Simulated assay, not measured.
Amino acid sequence: MAVPAGPLTLMSQIYRKVLPDVHRELERWKKKADQIPDPELRRQAHASMETKAFHCEGGAIYSLLAGDKRREIISFIVAYQTISDYLDNLCDRSTSLDPEDFRCLHQSMLDALTPGAVHSDYYRFRGSCSDGGYLSELVATCQHILRRMDAWKTIHPSLLELAGFYCDLQVHKHVEKDQRVPRLIAWFKKYRDRLPEMSWYEFAACSGSTLGIFCIVSYAAARGDEMRTLTGTIRNSYFPWVQGLHILMDYFVDQEEDKREGDLNFCNYYGSEEEMMKRFNYFIEEADDAIDNMPDRRFHKMINRGLLGIYLADKKVARQKNVRILARKLIRRAGGSGMFFFINGWVYRRLRQSI
């Protein structure tokens, strides 16, 4: 199956081949979540799938790179993203502010990428929590799919590196409020010499995406031995710029919600709206340049434009006057394909919410 290289072909394959399988996988995990004994864990598991299903839908687009292993990769992506969203809910909305607790929970994301890793009690710093094996089953699903790949040992170091950045971020951003920024700045300083010029909050945003993992796993399913050279190309293309663009857009549309909930939002650290927009445009340019050495370059450029269109189509944008005004500028900056994905995202989200 050819990788789609045009917006119409891409959207056709997303609607016909990706979204139906994503929703089947989510329904399967919702049934598993129904069996969680602990009421709070059960509530957060359901909330993560009901409010963040679009994360799985967007991530699963990378399955189109996996050839005839598309459905298997969708199972991996939905399981892994469900772990991410579930843990994000647990950390965001729990009374715990213990970094050991957050680190222990997120060990599941590293174990999920490591076939043969023994599942631990991920809740052990939370007292008596019982999820009926829900999180361990998500982990086992990811491990099973990776174990069947000839290239999993080749891709494993890069997967762990990207997941390590993600897990570190989740630990630092959920501790006591007065500790969050100092911890994030100290973390950034460890890597600053290996990064292009950026701020600590931009590095944090670059670390908060799972797209690089999904891209590597999807290619590994189809390309086997090629991953010896291709893995590094993907890693360097997606981290930091593509992943940074992804998460900056996420935070951009969530500004009002994060302020209301008292959550950290990296957009608040720009000195002005002008500076923020300048940096957003820089990330768009760098993300485009970063994928020039990738196979299927047109596909990945559409992903960049799709990130802009889909996030800016969120209803949250319309409820925030300043965000709405700036979003219009970003949509124009994204060009015709960005507008195409914006319109598709706008219509699709509202149809889904009306069902």
Rank of each mutant, 00 (worst) to 15 (best):
P4V: 10
A5H: 08
G6A: 12
G6K: 11
P7A: 03
L10H: 00
Q13E: 15
L19P: 07
L19K: 14
D21T: 15
D21Q: 15
V22Y: 06
E25G: 13
K31Q: 06
E40G: 03
E40D: 08
R43E: 14
Q44V: 02
H46E: 05
H46V: 00
H46T: 01
A47D: 09
A47K: 10
A53Q: 14
C56F: 10
G58P: 03
G59P: 05
A60V: 11
Y62M: 15
L65R: 00
A66Y: 03
A66T: 04
G67E: 05
D68P: 08
E72V: 08
I77R: 00
I83A: 01
S84A: 12
D85P: 01
Y86W: 07
L87M: 10
D88R: 03
C91E: 08
D92N: 07
P99E: 11
E100M: 13
L105Q: 09
Q107C: 09
S108A: 15
A112F: 04
T114I: 03
A117C: 05
Y123T: 07
R124Q: 15
R124M: 12
R126N: 14
C129I: 13
S130K: 12
D131Q: 03
V139G: 02
C142V: 06
L146D: 03
R148L: 10
D150G: 06
P157I: 02
L162D: 00
G164T: 10
G164D: 08
F165L: 09
F165Q: 02
D168C: 09
H172K: 12
E176F: 10
D178C: 11
D178L: 12
D178T: 13
I185N: 04
I185W: 01
W187S: 05
F188I: 07
R192P: 04
L195S: 06
W200S: 03
W200L: 07
C206M: 09
S207P: 08
G208W: 01
S209K: 09
L211C: 11
I213V: 13
S218K: 06
Y219G: 00
A220G: 06
A221N: 06
A222N: 12
T229N: 13
I234E: 01
N236S: 11
N236K: 13
F239K: 00
P240K: 05
V242H: 01
Q243N: 13
G244L: 04
G244C: 11
I247V: 13
L248T: 04
L248E: 03
Y251G: 09
D254S: 12
K259S: 10
D263I: 06
L264H: 10
F266G: 05
C267K: 03
G271K: 09
S272K: 10
E273R: 12
E274Y: 04
M276H: 02
K278N: 11
I284D: 00
D289S: 14
D292M: 13
R298T: 07
F299A: 06
R305H: 13
R305C: 01
G306C: 14
G309A: 13
I310L: 15
L312R: 04
V317A: 01
A318V: 07
L326Y: 02
R328T: 04
G335Y: 11
G336Q: 11
S337Y: 10
F342D: 03
I343P: 02
N344M: 11
Y348T: 13
L351F: 14
R352T: 14
Q353K: 14
